[in-house]
Design a protein around this nucleic acid. Structure first.
Length: 373
DNA sequence: CACCCGTGGGT
DNA sequence: TACCCAAGGGT
């Protein structure tokens, strides 16, 4: 668009086609400033899908090594669909939000069943796959098929909240924000536009200290013009996280094996393995707690010995302190009373099982003890 | 709609 | 230390 054309589109110094100008400004910025990310440059929906799921609530830097390992292990939808869920969880181990891995596995099987292994390109079909909501569907369809489907992730919420100087927390204005994202989306270049929005949020319009000086939308941004860019978006009222103290047992038999259990398939850390234990009740000692929990969960009697380690860990909606003790199996046959499965394993075999982060710290402490001897 | 669901990094 | 936040979705 030449200078003459631009001037014909303006009135009293204000561009009539302000939205078109805004789109072009962002795309021009992106052409120079875009991040070089492993899942960009291809339009194969499978790797784009994997990246979108891994990037949910997870930073790019964290995702990249997992992304490469995943595609090496499961290079196609078919290899993912036919893989064992425990193997899928093992590759996902450490990324968190494990329902994402379980849903990827399930969705891959649905794509084989319902679409002959071809990733669908209809919005309603994509939204019907487990683990894919509006934002992820928009990310996949715009990046893989250049379809004009908007997105509203954390980056876009923050950008839009500042753009219109939103006076309420974004969660209270999701409908309005979706409408904004849709109305801004470039109908000619939706894939590039959505990527550009996310890069703008990740590199310029950051949560703290936004770099407004280099922002292509500076003149469009109401928060900037009001001098309150860094004060927005408004935050939700937060309640302090509850804190639980947990007694944990590393139960040894007389063959140098440890008893581990697999958590129920759904819910917190579903399908992952752990060391058994439970919450310390008021006025209960750690040893009494561990003995009681092991009796309730596994139906056996144990002796509680030395402390292995104490682990502090923060989950998304509570935090825990795990007080871990060596224990010795005294009597009874272990039963899976409150879990899906139990096993005796050696310290060498234990890497074959997916464990949550707090438990891998325990394994590390056990390894250090054996190395010292 | 409120709550559940992990982990790492920044301040 | 404690809190915030990150390419959200399911129930």
């Amino acid at each position: 668009m030449g200078r003459n054309q631009k001037s014909a589109d303006s009135f009293a110094g204000l561009p009539i086609s302000s939205v078109e100008n805004q789109r072009e400004t962002l795309l021009t910025w992106y052409a120079n400033a875009c991040r070089d990310l492993p899942w960009r440059g291809s339009t194969d929906p499978y790797p784009i899908w994997i990246s979108e799921i891994m990037l949910q609530q997870t930073q790019v830097k964290t995702v990249i090594p997992y992304y490469h390992r995943w595609l090496a292990e499961f290079p196609t939808i078919e290899t993912l669909a036919t893989a064992d869920l425990q193997q899928v969880l093992l590759v996902w181990q450490g990324l968190g939000y494990y329902s994402r891995a379980r849903n990827l596995h399930k969705a891959a099987q649905q794509i084989i069943q319902d679409y002959g292994g071809i990733f669908p390109d209809q919005l309603s079909d994509v939204l019907a796959l487990p683990g894919i909501g509006r934002t992820t569907a928009g990310g996949i369809l715009s990046a893989a098929f250049n379809q004009p489907v908007p997105i509203l992730d954390g980056n876009v919420k923050r950008i839009l909240a500042r753009l219109v100087a939103l006076s309420v927390p974004p969660a209270k204005a999701t409908k309005k924000l979706w409408q904004l994202s849709e109305s801004l989306l470039d109908p000619e270049h939706p894939g590039t536009f959505n990527q550009a929005l996310m890069d703008l949020g990740a590199t310029i319009c950051t949560p703290k200290n936004p770099d407004c000086c280099h922002c292509p939308w500076q003149s469009h941004c109401q928060a900037y013009n009001l001098g309150i860019a860094s004060k927005l978006p408004m935050r939700e009222a937060s309640t302090p996280l509850p804190h639980k103290i947990i007694g944990v047992a590393v139960i040894w038999n007389n063959q140098e094996q440890i008893l581990i259990d697999r958590r129920p398939a759904q819910g917190l850390l579903g399908g992952l393995w752990e060391f058994p234990g439970g919450k310390i009740e008021p006025d209960e000692t750690v040893a009494d707690c561990i003995k009681r929990e092991i009796r309730e969960e596994l139906g056996i009697e144990i002796e509680v010995g030395d402390r292995v380690i104490t682990v502090d860990h923060a989950y998304s909606h509570f935090r825990v302190t795990l007080i871990v003790h060596h224990c010795r199996h005294l009597s009874g046959v272990p039963q899976a009373l409150e879990c899906d499965e139990i096993r005796w394993v050696t310290l060498e075999e234990i890497d074959q099982f997916p464990f949550p982060k707090a438990n891998t710290q325990i394994i590390g402490a056990l390894r250090q003890e054996t190395e010292r001897m």
